[in-house]
Design a protein around this nucleic acid. Structure first.
Length: 296
DNA sequence: ACCCAGGATGGAA
DNA sequence: TTCCATCATGGG
């Protein structure tokens, strides 16, 4: 069991705390395509976690967090940032493929977050056939139009929580289309209603076996294997979930099937059998690395 | 104008 | 089984 991070639980409520975080690459973690709402301003990252405004910064192995309102207990953020995870133990389980080890070296300190399952599901429902910058735009409009306002520090722009399933469930498709999500609007609306009514039990997905949790999610319109795996990996703690998008598919072909055409099913079988108990982590390193190479 | 984007779907070949 | 058009939108 990883050691519990240092926390300010015994001190007085404060708007600021910090943790020792040696192998934590905050930049890579927040831009690598697992979360869409973080914004870089003045050398720090601003975002909303749950209903709380947060600013994060990283300096010399120390991770600093500021909130708008005093916190007595920071475990919600420690959980979100996965500060208790021993990254080296995760990396030690990876197979020795040169492309993977190269990605690990290039993205040192990249972490997986533990996000809210509903926010994950809704976000990735909106992600299909869109670039990350566009996904961010749609989500921003969705939150500004339908999210609960949150308290922000003086001088900061307004902040909004990610709209709950219940809030979205009472809307109509036209309301959602105003956020320019196109054909994804009915998918999001149906998912919101399923989650709000209890037909879809999101908290339970973390406790179900991966295969069963995945098939539950794929019963939703607009959710195929890729989006299901994103929700399971980023929101439900399923460490073996392995989202295969166009970028990861290229990386897999490079590792295992160079210059050979192979079915999607073969790629899936290879991914599920090759990368070990933290396959999802390996996937994120591959994804982020190949994308940063492109933009360089 | 053309192609692509953290895809999924139903129907045709 | 695999392939393909379609869905909506913005950027390169």
């Amino acid at each position: 069991m990883p050691t519990a991070p240092h926390a300010a639980q015994t001190s007085a409520p404060s708007c600021r705390t910090c943790w020792p975080a040696n192998d934590y690459n905050l930049d890579a973690t927040l831009v690598c395509g697992q979360a869409f709402r973080w914004e870089r301003r003045d050398g720090a990252w601003t975002g909303i976690v749950g209903h709380r405004w947060v600013r994060l910064s990283s300096n010399g192995g120390v991770l600093t967090a500021e909130t708008a309102q005093a916190q007595r207990d920071w475990t919600w953020l420690e959980e979100y940032l996965q500060l208790g995870l021993d990254l080296q133990k995760v990396l030690a389980t990876f197979p020795p493929d040169p492309p993977l080890q190269q990605a690990v070296a290039a993205c040192r300190g990249l972490r997986l977050l533990r996000q809210d399952p509903w926010e994950c599901l809704a976000s990735f429902l909106l992600s299909s056939t869109k670039q990350i910058v566009q996904i961010r735009d749609v989500i921003r409009r969705l939150c500004e139009g339908h999210g609960e306002p949150v308290v922000v520090p003086p001088g900061e722009p307004p902040g909004f929580a990610f709209p709950t399933a219940s809030r979205l469930a009472v809307l109509c498709e036209a309301d959602l289309r105003q956020c320019r999500m196109g054909f994804r609007a009915p998918h999001l609306l149906a998912a919101a209603r399923a989650a709000a009514e209890g037909a879809l039990d999101l908290p339970q997905l973390a406790r179900l076996p991966l295969v069963e949790a995945r098939s539950r999610l794929m019963q939703l319109r607009g959710v195929g294997p890729k989006i299901a795996d994103c929700v399971l990996l980023f929101g439900c703690g399923h460490a073996r979930a392995f989202p295969i998008d166009v970028w990861v598919e290229r990386a897999l072909r490079e590792i295992r099937f160079p210059k050979r055409r192979v079915s999607a099913r073969a790629l899936r079988e290879f991914a599920d059998s090759h990368f070990g108990p933290h396959a999802g982590y390996a996937q994120q390193y591959l994804f982020h690395h190949i994308r940063t190479l492109r933009s360089a």
